[in-house]
Design a protein around this nucleic acid. Structure first.
Length: 833
RNA sequence: GCGAAAGUGGCGGAAUGGCAGACGCGCGAGACUUAGGAUCUCGUGGCUCCGGCCGUGGGGGUUCGAGUCCCCCCUUUCGCACCA
């Protein structure tokens, strides 16, 4: 009796065996030389995780598995796939957690990274552990600082005092993108407005390019839409409203005249066509000209309102969408279109951050202005007549639609769109207007008054001013500080470390101080993909040859929650480095796909709900292959899925059956596949090949299940030739199991190193007989079986012979026949009676 | 309010304008077993007078034929939100 070869499928044993073997063989590792000379390189990137103390969550694993399946697939199709992973370990989140635990982040983070590494290995990702990054490693953030210096030199970094979002709980500044509905995205504390000296990157200089390039990059539409909205381009005009001299009201209608100093209010509008209906002006309370326009008798009221606005936090101010408030300044300016003097108000519904911080109010055609005018009894003039309106039609609400201009002098009768241009052109002749584009995007504030980040590499000298740290002095190392707590005053923890911040000026050698703020974590991740191929090199941030070979990234997979932070800023940094000659491409990610979100039993997962999935437990019970396969089977990868605990049985049973089908290898039958099975095999190869390339994993897996069902139908025993390809097709999803079966089938040296993806043969997929649906008047009445390629006449003849069809044809005359070869016949007959 | 996506069995989800519900979960019946995830076979949208009829959020339309295309409406989710 031969040695027993049948053993039950034991995922844990199979998986640890292959993980060990991949490691020993360096299956997924690149040497520097191998990276320099790849055949058909494919850079398969996924968003690197933030190494929390809780370990990988199922969302991480979902994303990584989806990306890994893609990478393994392309590897089997012959590409050289570089699939790196790293750790985004700086930032407020880690720091807060360390504070909570009373552990120093320098102790905490390495522990978390070790745990993450263990978990990442366990799920069977094809990661190149020779090329990882850790953003907290001085060898990494040296180059983050280098990027700051490059942007500084390129004129893209500036220091300015600016209103910023201050989180009183995190005790730091937040980027606009980190403020959600007026609250801190991390701790949900109400954000305050503060005026602090900050470092900004001038991303607004790239607004148009960031927008334009969206046209040609292959990204998920949803992501592109988010970026488009965030950039927020508005086309309109800047209009000039000259300030009226005191007492100008008396001179109403006397034409446009500047005062002696030619003072004016500048407003941005997208509706210059409605300028004849501008009956008052509104300035943001913080507007610099408020003092200038306020008359003595209104001063106290104006001051009180400004103070109130200043003290109101952003949430209350922004959410006060019901009641409009504001006060009259006593000042007036001239509407350049009508020549009339109109009053100037201040109100907090006008924001200093957008446009010019001032508006012309057209209550007839703007909802907010209408509301305000109604509240304060200001005049409302109709200047656009919609369909069915006359010039004198009364308003129930602002009319914002299209129509013909009225009460607009020589522009009466013009439609809204042409009038926009005509009016701006007319005013431009008098230098009172210019066409203008505004963006909602603001410059990127990168300063953080915290400890756990790369120090911003700047030195302040009383004599020489602010200077970047010379590149040969990088990195500016983050010192080990026992007391790293943030402070309410906004003074950074590093400002308390005198021995660290005192330094000498690189210019004059005199006494100088270091910048004590650290940079935003998002800067770390704005270039990490450039670092991976060059991770082993310490003399440059990214090696020119390696970068040319591997970048831009071929495939990037990640979550849409990073659409406007990471993904937009990474594009900006890449463009900036490109323009400064450091890169020869301007877009970092040729293709980006956003994956969906995993929910559980129809509900969002959260710690507070107590319904999070613990990956380690699932993997221990079912194995990584089953977990991977189930996650990919849940639903369309780009839409996410609903994780139901019982559902894992399906993919688990499938892998067991696959094992049982192949496993007594010496009992597999030899010979060609049975014809029906071979046809199914080749249609399956075609479907899986197409769908895995397109991330349609759930249906690809369904096709594999269908095929195995057919192979095993009725307790049938498989032939070797029927299952070998199947093992390869499942390999991207269940790499360990596939390797094991492949080896047991007698192949040496490893599936991912030596095997290649099965080829689809259209001849073998072809069916001799086809089932043709037969309809009468569009309703299915029968199905007939005929040789493939049968003509319409033949099909009609067979159909007519069918009882179920004849019944319907007897009583009516055939009026028309629709024939779709090999698929369908529709006989249209006259309705009876 | 603006923008985007989506509404299909008990559930997750399939369907180049051409047989709606693939695949899986769950459930039902049976078989073989009975120590772990068992495995196998058959069935499983609703109604039915067993001829069929009705079914993809609702209402219209185009078409020989609509889950799919067009128009209107409803609901849900996700962004953005006094952005001038």
């Amino acid at each position: 009796m031969a040695e027993k070869t049948t053993t039950a499928y034991a995922p844990a044993a199979v998986e640890s065996k292959w993980q060990r073997r991949w490691e020993q063989r360096g299956t997924n590792l690149f040497t520097d030389q191998a990276l320099r000379d790849p055949r058909d390189p494919f850079y398969n990137l996924m968003m690197y995780p933030y190494p929390s103390a809780e370990g990988l969550h199922v969302g991480n694993i979902y994303a990584f598995t989806g990306a890994d399946v893609h990478g393994r697939y392309w590897r089997l199709r012959g590409k050289t796939v570089f699939e790196p992973i790293g750790f985004d370990a700086f930032g407020i989140h880690s720091e807060n957690y360390a504070l909570k635990l009373g552990v120093h982040p320098l102790d905490l983070i390495p522990r978390n990274i070790a745990n993450f590494t263990r978990q990442l290995r366990r799920i069977g990702g094809m990661f190149d552990w020779n090329h990882t990054v850790d953003t907290t490693d001085p060898l990494y953030y040296k180059w983050t600082q280098w990027i700051f210096v490059q942007l500084y030199k390129g004129g893209l970094a500036e220091r300015k005092k600016a209103p910023v979002n201050w989180c009183p709980s995190c005790k730091t500044v937040l980027a606009n993108e980190q403020v959600i509905a007026g609250r801190c995205e991390r701790c949900e504390t109400v954000v305050e407005l503060r005026y602090i000296e900050q470092w900004f990157f001038k991303i607004t200089q790239y607004a148009q390019q960031l927008l334009d390039n969206l046209q040609h990059i292959d990204w998920s539409e949803s992501t592109k839409r988010l970026q488009e909205n965030w950039i927020g381009r508005s086309e309109g005009a800047d209009l000039v409203f000259p300030l009226a001299d005191p007492g100008a009201r008396a001179a109403a209608g006397s034409g446009v005249r500047f005062n002696a100093d030619r003072e004016a209010l500048r407003v941005f509008t997208t509706r210059p066509d409605t300028i004849f209906g501008a009956t008052y002006m509104v300035l943001a309370p913080e507007h610099p000209l408020v003092d200038r326009v306020t008359s003595p008798e209104h001063r106290s009221e104006v001051e009180a309102y400004r103070l109130q606005a200043q003290q109101t936090d952003l949430v209350t101010r922004r959410k006060a969408e019901k009641q409009k408030t504001g006060v009259f300044t006593g000042g007036h300016c001239i509407n350049p279109a009508t020549g009339r003097a109109i009053p100037i108000w201040i109100a907090d519904y006008v924001l200093m951050e957008y446009g010019t911080g001032a508006i012309m109010a057209v209550p007839g055609h703007d909802e907010r202005d209408f509301e305000f005018a109604a509240e304060f009894g200001l005049p409302i003039v109709r200047v656009v007549a919609g369909p069915g309106d006359t010039a004198e039609s009364p308003f129930a609400a602002a009319y914002v639609g299209d129509g013909a201009l009225v009460h607009s002098g020589r522009f009466d009768g013009m439609a809204v769109e042409p009038a926009k241009r005509a009016i701006v052109d007319w005013l431009a002749e008098q230098e009172l207007a210019e066409h203008r584009v505004h963006y909602r995007l603001n410059d990127w504030c990168i300063s953080r008054q915290r400890y756990w980040g790369p120090p911003i590499p700047v030195i302040y000298c009383d004599a020489c001013g602010a200077l970047p740290v010379p590149e040969n002095q990088l990195p500016v190392e983050l010192p080990y500080v026992d007391d790293f707590r943030p402070h309410e005053s906004g003074v950074s923890p590093l400002a308390r470390v005198e021995g660290w911040y005192r330094t000498t000026c690189p210019e004059c050698g005199g006494e100088a101080r270091r910048e004590t703020d650290v940079s935003d974590t998002v800067l770390d991740s704005s270039w990490y993909f450039l670092r991976y191929p060059s991770a082993a090199k310490n003399d440059v941030p990214f090696d020119a040859d390696l970068t040319r070979t591997w970048l831009p990234v071929d495939s990037y997979i990640g979550g849409n929650e990073h659409a406007v932070l990471h993904l937009l800023y990474a594009r900006f940094i890449t463009m900036a480095l490109h323009d400064m000659g450091h890169l020869d491409f301007a877009e970092p990610f040729t293709k980006f796909r956003a994956h969906g979100l995993i929910i559980r039993e129809g509900a969002k997962m959260s710690k507070s709900r107590g319904n999070v999935i613990i990956p380690d437990e699932i993997i221990e019970r079912y194995g990584a292959d089953t977990f991977r396969l189930y996650l990919m089977f849940l639903g369309p990868f780009e839409q996410g899925g609903d994780y139901r605990d019982e559902g894992i049985q399906g993919p688990h049973g499938f892998l067991h059956r696959l094992w049982d089908t192949v496993m007594p290898v010496d009992q597999l039958e030899e010979g060609e596949p049975e014809p029906e099975i071979e046809r199914k095999l080749h249609t399956t190869i075609r479907q899986v090949t197409e769908q895995v390339a397109d991330l349609q994993y759930n249906t690809a897996i369904a096709a594999l299940m269908e095929y195995l069902n057919l192979v095993r139908a009725g307790g049938r025993r498989a032939r070797r030739s029927e299952v070998e390809s199947l093992v390869l097709l499942i390999a991207p999803f269940a790499p360990h199991l596939a390797e094991e079966l492949w080896e047991r089938l007698g192949h040496e040296g490893g599936l991912f190193e030596h095997a290649s993806w099965p080829a689809f043969d259209p001849d073998k997929a072809r069916h001799d007989t086809v089932e043709i649906a037969v309809q009468v008047n569009g309703k299915l009445r029968s199905v007939v079986s005929l040789p493939a390629g049968s003509s319409q006449d033949e099909v009609v003849r067979v159909a007519r012979a069918d009882d179920r069809i004849r019944r319907y044809l007897d009583e009516g005359s055939v009026r028309r026949i629709v024939f779709v070869p090999d698929r369908l016949l529709n006989v249209v007959v006259s309705e009876r009676g």
